[in-house]
Nucleic acid binder design. Structure first.
Lengths: 218, 218
DNA sequence: AAATATTTTTAGATTAATCTAAATATGCTT
DNA sequence: AAGCATATTTAGATTAATCTAAAAATATTT
């Protein structure tokens, strides 16, 4: 069984490897965990001995198959608890991270399972990030045009229908990129335009044309 | 801020002092925490230095005013989480202790407050034990005859109306004493008799006469 | 009250997680 | 490719929580 510290390192390594799409450096881990590179070296060695990460001295580290599964369980718990905090206890979505950091370490598979059920098997957390399933799989939902998304829903921008540069420039100008999470605030049926909220909290208007060309997930 | 280990010691000392109504011995603490007396001595010294317990070598230990307040906050969280696990996640009351032992260490006063509200400000946990309030006070509910308690409610036997020995003998025979927690299963309106469940899970019948003479709390 | 038994504390060691400082490896620059 | 800068690892120390074994205090028994 992993200690809290080991779990935190594993999660950090997983997240960094997702972001960089490559092996993770000691300094990067030290940075996100607010600790010293020397401590990171020690811990990596331990996680490597236990088979949770693949590691060669000076060459960086990454999660092993076993480590990824473990990391995704922790992330699953983190995101389920975030849903609980926001949906049931009415925290704001920007208040829940630190509490979920604590709750994610609670060890009881049955608890996780029952919590998932209680919450209605949510597929994304309040930040729009997907919740891995019990097997550690992240099911990426189908891409649909933003224009088909009902009001109040939070979605992740995952593609464009029509990728000509004029459209991409426009997205850039209004601060939307792949990976941006937006919330549909209002749909205007008469002209197909929408109001959406950006991660910056800013609410912007977008035309029917834009809404039909933006593909979003969940 | 107290570590998990310190919190567990403090809680154990509080519980033992409640049970014995006297100073708590090193061995007794070691027993309940499944640890060695030497470790207990070390920890007591630390808690004493921090002002959470009153301690004199070889003379036993007890929680200080500050320590009691802290212990009651931990107990409050433990019991609130037990209510959550049973009422919302549908755990059985005998399954929740180990999970609540983990959850009780989550640090966020706001979380505790919102959880309390979400659960409808329960006054007892699923075992019938009272939940301390935010100030660390245990409000003991009024004593009412068992006959007035609605079905499904779990109550604590805290007194008798009529204390003649024949009645007390009868209670003894049916395994009810002060401090016994019972659940009202069914009330029979036509003769005022009831079915109640004992901590042993056994369900027994009691007459109107018994139900009117048994005082219970919450 | 002296001897014995029990409880408690102390002394010294161990493990996990961290640190600082020093050594070593890698990478970048010219 | 040699030298310099940066990144990483190692060595040795520290703190928290635990342990075993021994010493000291308290309690019990005869």
């Amino acid at each position: 069984m992993l200690s809290h510290a080991e779990e935190n390192y594993l999660k950090a390594i997983y997240h960094l490897s997702q972001a960089d799409k490559s092996d993770v450096s000691t300094n990067a881990i030290a940075e996100v965990l607010q600790t010293k590179p020397a401590s990171v070296s020690d811990m990596i060695k331990k996680l490597s001995d236990k088979g949770f990460v693949d590691y060669q001295k000076y060459k960086g580290v990454n999660v092993s198959k076993k480590g990824r599964k473990e990391a995704l369980q922790i992330i699953r718990k983190h995101r389920l608890w975030e849903v609980f905090l926001v949906d049931k206890l009415h925290f704001r979505w920007d208040e829940v991270h630190d509490i979920a950091e604590q709750l994610e370490h609670i060890k009881s598979p049955l608890l996780t399972q029952k919590l998932d059920k209680f919450l209605g098997y949510p597929r994304v957390d309040p930040h729009g990030d997907p919740i891995p399933n019990e097997l550690g799989e992240i099911i990426i939902g189908n891409k649909v045009p933003l224009s088909e998304v009902p009001a109040k829903q939070k979605v992740l921008v995952t593609g464009v229908e029509d990728s000509d540069s004029e459209f991409l420039n426009h997205l850039d100008k209004i601060n939307i990129a792949l990976g941006t999470k937006v919330v549909v605030i209002e749909k205007n049926t008469f002209d197909g335009s929408m109001q959406i909220e950006l991660p910056s909290q800013e609410i912007i208007f977008i035309s029917k044309q834009v809404a039909e060309n933006l593909l979003v997930t969940e």
